[in-house]
Design a protein around this nucleic acid. Structure first.
Length: 428
DNA sequence: TCTGGGGTCCTAGGACCC
DNA sequence: TCTGGGGTCCTAGGACCC
């Protein structure tokens, strides 16, 4: 399995995890909301995807539909925001930029989390200093966990978040401290154990992380597959998942949206699919990749009672891998034509691209009709213009202008850090 | 009226080849 | 046409993560 054993304190892995990240981002620019409950909603203002501690205390659950919480929100003066990924992405970059110089290796794990090893010896004091610096320079509170493996670091940071007495930093470095922590750590909260596995484990009497660590290896292999075996080893302190600095090339890229209002006409659906396809192609070029398959899917609303449901998807294999807007859009529209049925109203649609290869490795087809080098200059120019002037300023006709399918975002905050028009003004 | 979006890894089973 | 073991590749579906 290629496991490495790291046990001295220098080998400690740290995880930096931003507290209630999206809610914290909103609060940085609205300091009057300190101590007030905040929630952030998903696209279309659909369900709750982030909560401040005050909102958690009110019993607002993650993932619950916003409309079911309306009364709770107004009764308790909850401040509700539509999600603003432009803002969160930029705040994330700022936090990561502060962490980076302190590290030997660093893995950007998600928008609000990074694994790292410190330059030189790791210690709780260093973690506290880093935490303080991030808070001072960005306004974002973070928690830090330290342990011999990523899985144990996740346990440590979980403890740091739950216990105010830790003041945001917790270290699991000695065998006894690890054992004590795992004894009272619910198996459901482990990284890699979801609802299904937790239910299965409990039905066999395994409810704490320590019990899982001590479970029979063969049993774990049979019931939780190799993923479970790796998890068990990491609980024992053996590194199976090292801090991975290189970001691997994406294997799939997708853009999918639920529509603010159901879409019935082919032309509106075509605009949406065209825009999603361009979005995928743009991400693809940013990675320096080409794709060889395009998939389109469309769904009716599964929550609508008594309505006939229709879900369909179709995939096309391309003769020559590409990252060209026109080619990917043409493929997507062709697929849409094949699966579109006029009698339905559609709630969600998306484009997915796969079979991804580096653009330097594309094998040209014998009967290739496209002048690829000219096209690639064209795409470069489009990307440059759009990155300066804003997304989709230069667009294909198929993307349209009416965007009948657009998202609902009724409570969107300004992009304080990425748009001059949205800069805060201070009155003195 | 109103229920997210974007990913990864693993496994089983089918098709195909020698 | 059938038999059979062994290997590879692909796909769909499950489970999980943030």
């Amino acid at each position: 399995m290629g496991c490495r054993n790291l046990r001295n304190s220098q080998g400690l892995i740290a995880i930096v995890d931003c507290n209630n990240f999206y809610a914290s981002c909103e609060r940085v620019f609205r300091p009057n909301l300190t101590g007030k409950p905040i929630v952030v909603l998903s696209n279309n203002d659909g369900c709750v995807i982030a909560r401040s501690n005050e909102a958690k205390a009110l019993g607002i659950k993650m993932g619950t539909p916003a409309f079911k919480n309306d009364k709770l929100f107004s009764r308790n003066g909850v401040h509700v925001f539509s999600c603003n990924f432009e803002l969160y992405g930029d705040m994330s970059r700022r936090v990561m930029d502060i962490i980076k110089p302190e590290t030997d290796e660093m893995e950007f794990y998600s928008i609000d989390e990074a694994f790292l090893t410190f330059k030189g010896p790791a210690s709780e004091e260093r973690a506290r200093a880093l935490r303080f610096q991030i808070l001072k320079w960005t306004g974002i509170p973070v928690s830090i966990g330290l342990a011999p493996t990523k899985t144990l670091a996740k346990v440590a940071v979980h403890i740091a978040k739950k216990n105010p007495s830790t003041r945001g930093v917790y270290s699991l470095s000695s065998p006894t401290s690890i054992e004590r922590a795992l004894y009272s750590f619910p198996v459901d909260d482990l990284w890699g154990i979801g609802y299904r596995s937790a239910t299965k484990l409990k039905s066999f009497g395994i409810s704490s992380a320590l019990q899982l660590r001590r479970a029979h290896h063969g049993w774990v292999r049979r019931n939780l597959s190799v993923t479970g075996v790796k998890l068990q080893k990491e609980l024992c302190g053996t590194v199976c998942s090292p801090v991975n600095e290189v970001i691997p090339r994406k294997q799939n890229i997708r853009t999918a949206r639920s529509f603010g209002k159901e879409v019935e006409t082919y032309s509106a659906l075509k605009e949406a699919i065209g825009t999603f396809a361009v979005n995928c192609a743009t991400k693809l070029r940013k990675e320096g990749s080409c794709c060889s398959t395009v998939t389109v899917f469309i769904h009716t609303n599964p929550f609508k009672p008594h309505a006939l449901e229709y879900n369909n998807s179709r995939t096309l294999k391309l003769d020559v891998p590409t990252n060209d807007n026109m080619e990917i859009v043409a493929a997507a529209i062709k697929l849409l034509k094949e699966i579109y049925r006029p009698i339905f109203a559609y709630k969600k649609a998306g484009v997915m691209i796969g079979g991804i290869v580096p653009d330097s490795q594309v094998q040209l087809g014998l009967f290739d009709a496209v002048d690829r080098s000219r096209r690639s200059y064209l795409m470069q120019s489009i990307d440059e213009i759009n990155s300066k002037l804003g997304r989709d300023k230069v667009r294909l006709a198929v993307q349209g202008f009416d965007r009948k399918w657009r998202l609902r975002q009724e409570r969107l905050s300004p992009c304080y850090t990425t748009r001059f028009s949205d800069l805060l003004t201070v009155k003195i």
